[in-house]
Computed example of a mutant assay.
Amino acid sequence: MYIIATAVTAFVFAFIAIKFFNPVAIEIGLVDKPSERKQHAGHIPLIGGISIFLAVLAASLLWLPDTLELRMYLIASAMMVFIGALDDKFDLRVRIRIVGQIIIASLMIYGVGGYISNLGDLFGLGDVTLGPFGIIFTYIGIIVVINAYNMIDGIDGLIGSLSINTFTSIAILFIMSGQTNYISYPLVLATATLPYLMFNLGLFKKLFNKNTQKIFMGDAGSMFVGLSVIWLLIMGTQGEQASFRPVTALWICAIPLMDMLAIVVRRYRNGKSPFKPDRDHLHHILQRVGLTSQKALLVISFASVLMSIFGVVGEYFNIADTVMLIAFIFMFICYVSTIKHLIKNEST
């Protein structure tokens, strides 16, 4: 029963936070302004992430057990949202954002001892254990996932849809493993994201004929989502109470990871900074070859759901880690080849 209460509380608090902070964001200039790279009409409040975090905070304090892990997660999340909000307002340098992410990663690693020490039986020779290198690997993993979700946020509804898909998939994996104590964590994140998605896509206006202000997630939100994803993945795949295998984690956040890896390599080959913003993400390419933003959203979201289903099914039937890893690498090669084909068609 408390699971339902937690989810309802998160949804209601997120909705209230959006309505409250909307005029505040406009008043203090926490808005996204149109530019050559950001093609939208008007100044859009960047309060999606703040509303989601506050909803998760309220629901967690009211309903979830008070544990060290939860307290450290909420502290780390508050820091992540604060840094992201500063970035939304003042456009921080990449170096400052990365330093902030490293500090936050340290809270997770040393605050609760949560780090990636076991990658599973990836090569059919037994579990790959990382030992002390696991801490370095975890730092890299946290920074990669945070920035993968940050980079994918480029069209209406995309970060919201992908994050809900990821959180829901993690909840299903917890249910499959019998770890019912953990289900509330991804569910509260998913339900807290729903109001943002409805405002972002204008669904309240379409459903209830209400003239509501569109909002964006902002870096505060996308980095908070990435932090939450990697926290849940570490919690779900490591330790004696692990609920699913590390290789499964690749599948349930496949699209953000593939998009980031592909674009970082492409930027590096072109002599650009991996963190320099551009319009060469998957959603931008789909739009340039003729898809509307709505169709691009549907295509990417559908692909993300399919990959998550493959990961969940693979976990359910205990398909060998090696097979799951090879399939993921094959899918990434297909992804890169498709992007190259689309870019080639775009230039002809």
Rank of each mutant, 00 (worst) to 15 (best):
Ala327Trp: 09
Val112His: 09
Asn200Pro: 05
Asp121Lys: 10
Ile104Trp: 14
Thr129Ile: 09
Val299Gly: 05
Val112Phe: 11
Lys33Arg: 15
Ile252Trp: 02
Val8Phe: 09
Ala220Thr: 00
Gly178Asp: 15
Gly271Met: 10
Asn118Leu: 04
Leu203Gln: 08
Ser293Cys: 03
Ile172Gly: 03
Ala249His: 13
Tyr185His: 00
Met260Asn: 00
Phe328Cys: 11
Phe167Ala: 01
Ile172Phe: 03
Thr6Ser: 10
Val225Gly: 05
His341Lys: 09
Gly131Glu: 14
Glu240Thr: 12
Leu57Gln: 10
Ile28Arg: 12
Val24Asn: 02
Phe11Met: 03
Gly290Leu: 11
Phe199Glu: 13
Asp121His: 06
Val94Asn: 10
Arg269Val: 02
Gln101Tyr: 14
Gln101Phe: 14
Ser35Lys: 08
Lys33Gly: 05
Glu315Lys: 04
Val312Gln: 02
Arg266Trp: 08
Val112Gly: 04
Thr338Glu: 11
Asp87Glu: 12
Arg93Cys: 07
Ser161Gln: 11
Phe82Cys: 03
Gly126Arg: 12
Met331Ser: 14
Ile96Gln: 10
Thr338Tyr: 11
Ile252Pro: 03
Asn209His: 13
His284Trp: 14
Asp127Gly: 06
Gly111Glu: 03
Pro34Arg: 05
His284Ser: 13
Gly113Asn: 03
Gly236Gln: 09
His283Ser: 10
Lys276Glu: 14
Leu130Lys: 11
Arg95His: 08
Phe15Ser: 13
Pro256Gln: 05
Ile319Ala: 03
Met235Leu: 14
Leu107Pro: 08
Asn270Arg: 12
Ile146Ala: 09
Ile50His: 01
Met331Thr: 13
Ile52Ala: 01
Tyr196His: 09
Thr138Ala: 07
Asp321Pro: 04
Asn209Glu: 15
Asn200His: 06
Leu46Arg: 01
Lys295Asn: 11
Leu306Pro: 03
Gly226Ala: 06
Leu286Asp: 01
Ile47Cys: 00
Ile16Phe: 08
Ser163Asp: 06
Arg266Pro: 08
Thr322Leu: 14
Lys205Phe: 02
Thr6Gln: 05
Glu315Pro: 10
Leu107Val: 15
Asn150Arg: 00
Leu92Arg: 09
Phe332Asp: 10
Ile103Thr: 06
Tyr182Gln: 11
Thr193His: 03
Ala14Asp: 07
Ser35Gly: 15
Ile44Leu: 02
Thr166Phe: 12
Tyr139Phe: 15
Asp153Thr: 01
Cys253His: 14
Leu197Gln: 00
Lys205Cys: 01
Glu346Gln: 13
Asp259Asn: 04
Met331Tyr: 12
Phe199Thr: 05
Phe20Ala: 05
Asp127Lys: 10
Asp32Tyr: 02
Gly141Lys: 11
His43Trp: 08
Met79Asn: 08
Ser308Arg: 05
Pro195Leu: 09
Gly111Arg: 13
Tyr335Ile: 08
Ile183Met: 05
Ile329Asp: 14
Thr129Gln: 12
Phe53Leu: 07
Gly114Met: 15
Leu342Val: 00
